[in-house]
Each structure stands twice: as structure tokens, then as C-alpha cells.
């Protein structure tokens, strides 16, 4: 069984930053593996360690710089990686869900995995749709916001998953394979890459591919979405100080919380 994990290097802004137009300058950005994808990688590696997956392939859309991040997925146990990038992607202001879906669809067709694991969302652009959109394009089954995967079920060709819903409700769903599962944080405890894993990862393949290699052209990454503005919202702080001893202060805090609706019946 083959597992494909979509991973993304995301940008995080430093504490102090400035917005210029609709972007933030590189000097204020730090790059890391998308948090949700870290959980997806761990889930895939656990499937491999349990002897269920024969191969774990990580795929990413990103520039050469992102290899450093993708290599962490290899250090944690993924067997090899595919990285898609070319001039058309370099020149694109924004990659929307449609563009990512078009690219990943081609990779999935080439790799033919049994399961695709994808983070629920990316930390930076936060579209939260790529995994499900990819399943739709492929005609795969899908389950979103998965916070438990029954490993044994996977071997039988159906993934039994638990999904997290709003309001503290969870549901169990059986999804026929092949399928795309979007992985929620908390599904597992992502490991640290070991030093030997890091060393082995230096020798693992990260295959670079262009849109052309996938049979796509620049039109595939044309956006229907336009980013019109980016700004920091005004923030206001409203601090309340309670005077008096601990009992008195606690009583005032309880009154305030009740007033705000906490614990109301």
C-alpha cells in the first residue's frame, strides 16, 4: 500500500513586521513545515511502521528553499519526495485551491497511492480546501478533519476514521479507499526527527518536477482569485483590574464571567 502525503512549507511572520501592499517582505518571514502536515506525515510513518504502508511519498509545491523543510518529512520516515516548481509558479502572486488541485491531481495520477493524507489547512494562506478539492477532482472518497484513523481498517480497504465536529461532537465514518483524508492536529504526537533519520534524509530523493513534466502549462495556475488587500486589524485591549483579597477578587471574576455567559444555563 502506498501513502502520499501533501506537505507545505509555510511562512510565519515575526513578532514585528510590515505589510507592503498585499504582501509581507521576506525579511519578516520564517519558514517551517505546516503544523497540520506534520501530523499527516506522522500518521503516514506510523502506517509504514505498522507494516501497512509499503511506501510513503511526500509531495510539495514549493521553491528550492522548501527542500530544507521537506527533508524533515524524509528525516521522520517518508521514503522519498516530489517537489513541483517552475517559472510559472515562481511568477504567480497567489496559488489558489484550483491551481493546487490541478497540480496535485497530476501527481496523484502518476503515483497512484491508496491513501492521500493532507493537513486540514495551511498555517499561512488558510484556504482549508485543497485536500477535499483534490478528492473531488480525482473522484476519490474523502473525509475531512480526521482526528483518529483505525490503522487495521486501512488494510481491509476501508478507512474507519473519527472526525471532529463543532461543539465537541465527534463522528465515526467509514471511507472506501482510495481516499483523501484531511488530518487534524492531535491525531497523534509528531515525533522529532532523529539524528540518524536526518542523515539518511540527506540521501533520499527529492524529485524536482515542472508543470511541463506533469503535462500542465502555465494556464493551470492562473488564478480566479484576486488578493485585494492585506492589513492588520485594529486591536483594542479592555483590561479589568479586581481589587481586594483573593476571595473578593475571585467573586468579582465569577460575576464577570457569568455576565459574559460562561457557565450560564
Amino acid at each position: 500500500m502506498k501513502v502520499l502525503v501533501t506537505v507545505k512549507e509555510v511562512a510565519a511572520v515575526e513578532d514585528e513586521f510590515q505589510i507592503a501592499g498585499t504582501s509581507i517582505d521576506e525579511t519578516y518571514l520564517e519558514y517551517d513545515l505546516n503544523e497540520w502536515d506534520d501530523y499527516a506525515v506522522e500518521e503516514a510513518v506510523q502506517l509504514q511502521e505498522a507494516g501497512i504502508a509499503d511506501e510513503v511519498v511526500a509531495v510539495t509545491i514549493g521553491p528550492e528553499r522548501s527542500e530544507e523543510t521537506i527533508r524533515m518529512a524524509l528525516a521522520k520516515g517518508a521514503d522519498r519526495a516530489v517537489r513541483i516548481w517552475d517559472d510559472a509558479l515562481e511568477g504567480a502572486d497567489l496559488l489558489d485551491v484550483g491551481a493546487k488541485t490541478a497540480i496535485l491531481e497530476k501527481v496523484v495520477e502518476e503515483e497512484d497511492p491508496d491513501i492521500v493524507l493532507s493537513g486540514v489547512q495551511a498555517d499561512d494562506d488558510g484556504f482549508g480546501a485543497t485536500g477535499v478539492s483534490l478528492a473531488d477532482a480525482l473522484g476519490y472518497e474523502w473525509a475531512a478533519v480526521v482526528n483518529h484513523l483505525d490503522q487495521d481498517s486501512v488494510e481491509s480497504g476501508t478507512a474507519s476514521v473519527r472526525r471532529e465536529l463543532e461543539g465537541g461532537v465527534e463522528e465515526l465514518t467509514d471511507v472506501e479507499l482510495p481516499a483523501v483524508l484531511t488530518i487534524q492536529t492531535g491525531i497523534n504526537e509528531p515525533r522529532y526527527a532523529s539524528l540518524r533519520g536526518i542523515r539518511q534524509a540527506q540521501r533520499k530523493e527529492i524529485a524536482p518536477k515542472t508543470l511541463g513534466d506533469l503535462g500542465l502549462d502555465a494556464a493551470a495556475v492562473e488564478n480566479e482569485l484576486e488578493l485585494t488587500d492585506m492589513y492588520e486589524p485594529e486591536t483594542e485591549s479592555d483590561a479589568t483590574y479586581f481589587e481586594g483579597g483573593p476571595d473578593e477578587a475571585a467573586g468579582q471574576l465569577a460575576d464577570l464571567l457569568r455576565e459574559k455567559g460562561v457557565g450560564a444555563q
Binding site: 530544507e68 527533508r71 524533515m72 528525516a75 522529532y192 526527527a193 539524528l195 536526518i198 542523515r199 534524509a201 540527506q202
Partner: peptide, 15 residues
Amino acid sequence: SSEQAAVRDVVREFA
């Protein structure tokens, strides 16, 4: 090296 940088990052996070 890329290996040294990756080791530094992981140990820094662990610490």
C-alpha cells in the same frame, strides 16, 4: 551543511 542545520533545528526545538 544542510545536515548540520537540520540537526541544530531539531535539537533547538527539543531543548
